[in-house]
Nucleic acid binder design. Sequence first.
DNA 1: ATACATACC
DNA 2: AACTGGTATGTAT
Length: 594
Amino acid sequence: MTANPNALEHDGQDSNLHDTLKYSLLGPSLTKSGQDSVDQKKVSDIIYDASKGSKFFAHEENRDKLLTVKIERILEKKARLEKLNLTRDQKKADEYVAELELSRDLTQTVVHVDCDAFYAAVEELDRPELKLVPFAVGKGVLTTCNYHARKFGCRSGMAGFVAKKLCPQLIQLPLNFEKYTAKAREVREIISQYDPRFESASIDEAYLNITAYCESNSIRPEEAVEQLRKEVHEKTKVTISAGIAANTKLAKICSNINKPNGQYRLQNDRGAIMTFMDTLPTRKVNGVGRVFERELDAVGVKTCGDIYQYRQYLSKLFGEKAFKFLIQCYLGLGRTDTQPAEEYERKSIGTESTFADLSGHNGLCDKLEKTAQELEKDMVKAQFKGKTLVLKVKLHTYEVLTRQVIPPKAVYLAGDLYKYSLPMLSKLEQEFKGLTLRLMGLRCTHLVTMKKPDPLAFFGYPKVRNSPASSGPASESNESKGEPVETGGSSSSGVWPSEDFEEAAKDEYQEELEELEILSQLEELESQQFNEGKLDSETKPESGGLVKEAAREASSASASVEKGKGQLKRGRHDSGKSRSGLKDDPKQTRLSFN
DNA sequence: ATACATACC
DNA sequence: AACTGGTATGTAT
């Protein structure tokens, strides 16, 4: 608690730096469960000492200073605003509040379920003796740890060697992604019975709308969720925690309250919700991270209730999106609908890896090639090409740079990925003499599907499925040849001249070839995986065994299969906002204008 | 459009 | 010594 910068933000000038830095070094999951009884002061000192003097530390220190400067500027701006007449802004805020209030929907019951220390729980199933000792999953960095380990201050996201300082007897297991995805599937199968349209928020989290379930079974939400949790525990042997509330934002917060293996319901009652939000620290809201928390704290907003009294400043201080997000936090509003995985389309595919400091043209090119090969695998699995290619590097100083290009055609093959990213790398080498990297990554965005074309296209109904030029193999083929889709002219008419028909047939043929290519590569992948067995995923992440299934699920981002890469896969739009959950809730917005 | 930053697990 | 990886989305320019 002492390391919380909030208490020290305004007074002293210099000692703050270390406090905010220490707070930051505590890591992003500080607010998460299992840390209540831990002496955070002691923990932060140990982390601080362990990190001190490293390049990582220097970088963190630098970032911390930059944020401090940024916050100073925000405060200056606020001071200027205080001298102005902001009645217009206040009116605007009040109007927005009123508008949102009209749209408040308390008819729905939303549940957020979250598996407790999921990876650790799964590992304990195989090795029950682990229950008795502190252990973590993840070698270089902990992805999760059991509650024994948390008592020592260990947390997800923490460097392994730091965790060992806090808890020398800590056991670290390598990740075994296949095991986790298999178990996650078991859990999902059960929750799908309560809401077939449930939304996977990550491998171990989901949102359900149980309104219909409760209605048709004449059961109270609390009972339904008790039953769900019991069923999950009995059938899968993992425990889950749940939050029950009127919308996803509230449910998410509530699922943390009685973790582990508990649930909490916030009644669908406006007064109860307002009271709940009033004292809720901003950081508890999904979308408010360490940075935004500090910025808000600096201007006087510590809890969601505090938002109201500063409403006239927020838009100018943090931007329109943040303003809307914050007002919705104040009111405790959020989505009531869920987005099933099948209806979700991913927007980018990428891979990156960290390695020992690397410099020199040849070595870097080599690494780029490896990275390109990794990405090709993922692109093939997902059956996408990318119109934009992004190179990401992290210098040995931990500074991150990105560069992007739009190749003449959509790309997915390692050769192309390499060919078009190499110039970016070379330019960086010129820009930064003696370029030394600790990470390299490639990512494709503006994806286009490589799925089989609609057979109907052959019969002169080319544009059944998609909005113009967005996706669909026909347009994609055009792009592959570097021709703007619009110039095709064929598809819009609905009747194809023979010339265009030939063109289409050619495309079709090409698709077939690509299809074959994909299949053969899939075979390759599968046999590869078969041979890989369970390698330490730090160096060689294996993907979930069912490659073809992954390919089928492709764009659905079913929050499960595909990647053996990341630890916790995010596949959601709801929580991935940048500085906050600033994205307006689409439904809210729409409702409010109805 | 590009680069960077923040956030989530 | 040692501090992740994948995806999304915000702001600034």
